[in-house]
Amino acid sequence: MANEPLKLAHYRSRDAFAAYSFLAPAGIILLVFWVLPVILSLLVSFTNWHGGDTVADVEWVGLKNYRMALEDPRFYKTLWNTLNYVLWSVPLTLIVSLGVALLLSVNIRGIHFFRTAFFLPYVTAWVAISIVWSYFFQQNFGLANYFIDILNESFGFGIERLKWLNEPRGVIEMALTGVGQRLGLLDPARQIDFQNPLLEGPSLAMFAIIITSVWRDAGYFMIIFLAGLQSIDTSFYEAAQIDGAGPVGRFRYITFPLLTPVTFFCLIIAMIGAFKVFVPMLIMTPRGGPSNSTMTLVYFLYDEGFMSWRLGYASAIAYVLFIIILAVTLLQNRLLGGRVHYQ
């Protein structure tokens, strides 16, 4: 009806008027608080705007803020921390959620109970749950170290109590050092030090936050995976069964390929979310954590922008974050986009 070509002109203009007035409320908000800010942010990132300044004090400094970021060791530290967080938390979350979804799709009793149990953490606020987990990882009387004590007592492991949220050393380094010393390959006085942020892994403090985020977010992706699994036509499985495929073969050749669109969607959502992580760092490890090892890009932005009030520099960091997220999304579309269409 609305697309009919033979319509009187004044009806069309009335339609257009109605459409624009319907669009106006959302449009104005989007324009003022989303589109305009993107431009304003870029402009601010080229200035030395400081919190207390009036507009007259502000100077155009060109690319100085970006150059400053490239020379700032704190910025690099932040970038590696964020990258480490993304590289560890995203695969862990997706593997756990896919695993639980697969278990629940076996059609067992009590699926509602388990689904609720795994999903419940997702509706809780990051702030509240970060407080709970910072108590869990508390060095002296937290449950995490208590479990290590129990392991030591029950199996004689002899693992040291860990410093968790106060430990700046990378987890890969710590694990290799521990195993090396136990096997007698490494001098007990020596620590492995890779001097490379990706090789040494996230700091143990960051790893504790990664555990928290896996615990919280796995349920969300589990629900999406479960919906994806339930949408796979059962006739595929019946056909495979006739052909003699075992459970592993069915997963490898039916479930996984047919699930790729959903996996791809989850991957993008999880990565974008992980690049923007901030709250657990603020609550669990105040002031950037041990040796700034849990300072992420958004935390850095918040710290520079609203603690130090260096709005120009913070805007430049915000733009770097923007470009990273954009690049990740486009790159994933490019690399994986061609391989996910099975319908």
Binding site: V38, F275, F306, A318, L321
Partner: peptide, 15 residues
């Protein structure tokens, strides 16, 4: 939708 909300913090605050 591609714009992360964190990018908007400073300009929205200034606006």
């Amino acid at each position: 939708m591609m714009v992360p909300g964190q990018v908007l913090l400073i300009p929205d605050f200034l606006i």
